[in-house]
Design a protein around this nucleic acid. Structure first.
Lengths: 255, 255
DNA sequence: ATCGCAACTTGATTAATGTCAAGCTAAAGC
DNA sequence: GCTTTAGCTTGACATTAATCAAGTTGCGAT
């Protein structure tokens, strides 16, 4: 096995491998290897055949798609996240491209091994189903966020989500550059600037990557966060149990 | 068992039960029952606890969601389709509401039974994973369709998809009322009308639910259909094998 | 230090879409 | 037959977001 024990353990404890027995785990990651990529490296293009499940251990990755000279960002992933699991399960081609945003470490698990593990061990297969179901629900949330909210509302909710995840203090640090955030929220950088201005009414102040809140109540009145769209606790899914197994892909990311 | 053999057989042959052995099948649908609903019946509201997997056998169902007095349609399902599978797998609440559009027959499978079947039989669990992965990819296509295309382009591609599914002739029949189609394509009925007008340049003529094509080449030049967004063959997934296992949820539906 | 560049902001303009208000049409009911 | 009504269409207008064009800021490299 071409991966260090420390990395194997890290994967075991954080992804859907968590509950697998040793034998299944070894089957499922047979032939896996760890790879390091510099920033802005294309890991996968839309339409490519998918041979590996990717597990992001360090860094961050953008999932995107293009058509007719336009491009859009579908999600930004942070460790520990799997990606293109659906394509691996179906032995299909990729519907999204994947590009590193920073220097990243990625465990690459052969699709054959993963599928063999799923077919040999029902409990492991079920855990993969839970992961897939969580990803699906993350996308549903993302679509609802986009179709039901305008850009200012999306930003307001993004900020409240970040605030909840960063401990509920009255200042947060944006985890991405603003142009990346704009892409994630489905708007242009220009409109992100304007959306921040609109929120200054609601007690939101911006200084570089630092965002301050002086009146959360009035911001929430605009944002109207909903547990059926927003997932304020995605990062805690490992400690909070089933209720938060969901993955937070899409616009709300896992920042 | 409260369902007729004919219904059971129908489910077996068309959904992810296809490859299950009898014992697993019986475990997975233990306690299932068939229910008939009139048109415009709410089966499930957002936020409801989900106790059953729904399998649509006859009729059609709209999946939607709302926020702040706005509503949006996420998908329109036709037989045979499962829905809210992800919530069942995660024993979670529904992120979408489900309403019948016409008189419908729905098989309701207890979530407990389904999960038990998945945990007892790895092959069955894998088949459910494939279904989930297909649903996931359907949503990815839907998001790409919405974020990368304007409303006229979405309509043009919808028409080409319908044309392919209805045999490639130069006339098709719209499977839904125009107001439903508008909701599905993420626009108002007014803008759907205007989008049809714009396409008259491209040889598209409309007469009620009948749509004619006099110059598919020029329509395709505008629509630029892509296998990475559109799924012209979704209905044939059972006969074409793995490459088309994917479910066609979202804007492109399964019409 | 300052030069250069990329990120960000701001303003003016254009394009796309939603909203409101009539009006039209065709099928259902009386 | 006529009337009603829901679905659809059309036009005028408002709102939202993208685009284009300057600027400004801040950081890194030399």
């Amino acid at each position: 096995m071409a991966i260090r024990n420390a990395d194997a353990e890290r994967v075991r404890n954080t992804s859907f491998f968590r509950d697998a027995d040793d034998e299944t785990f070894n089957t499922a990651i047979n032939g896996a290897f760890l790879q390091r990529f510099p920033a802005n490296t294309t890991l996968l293009m839309e339409g490519d055949t998918v041979d590996f499940l990717y597990i992001l251990l360090e860094g961050s990755v953008e999932l995107g798609a293009g058509w007719k000279s336009k491009d859009t960002t579908l999600a930004i992933l942070r460790p520990v996240s799997t990606f293109i699991l659906a394509a691996v399960v179906l032995e299909s081609d990729a519907l999204m491209s994947a590009v590193t945003l920073e220097r990243s470490e990625i465990l690459m698990v052969p699709g054959d091994s993963l599928r063999r593990g799923m077919k040999e061990n029902a409990a492991f297969g079920f855990a993969v189903s839970e992961e897939l179901a969580g990803c699906y629900r993350g996308l549903v949330r993302s679509i609802k966020n986009h179709k039901l909210r305008d850009s200012t509302e999306r930003l307001a909710n993004y900020l409240l989500t970040q605030r909840a995840r960063q401990g509920g203090k009255d200042e947060i640090v944006l985890p991405h550059e603003k142009r990346v955030l704009a892409a994630l929220l489905g708007m242009t950088p220009e409109n992100l600037s304007r959306a921040f201005s609109k929120l200054s009414d609601k007690g939101v102040s911006v200084d570089g990557a630092r965002v301050g809140f002086s009146n959360v109540t009035v911001l929430e009145r605009l944002a109207r966060p909903s547990p059926l769209i927003d997932n304020h606790y995605a990062q805690d899914r490992n400690t909070l149990g089933k209720a938060y197994t969901e993955r937070q892909q899409g616009v709300l990311d896992q920042g």
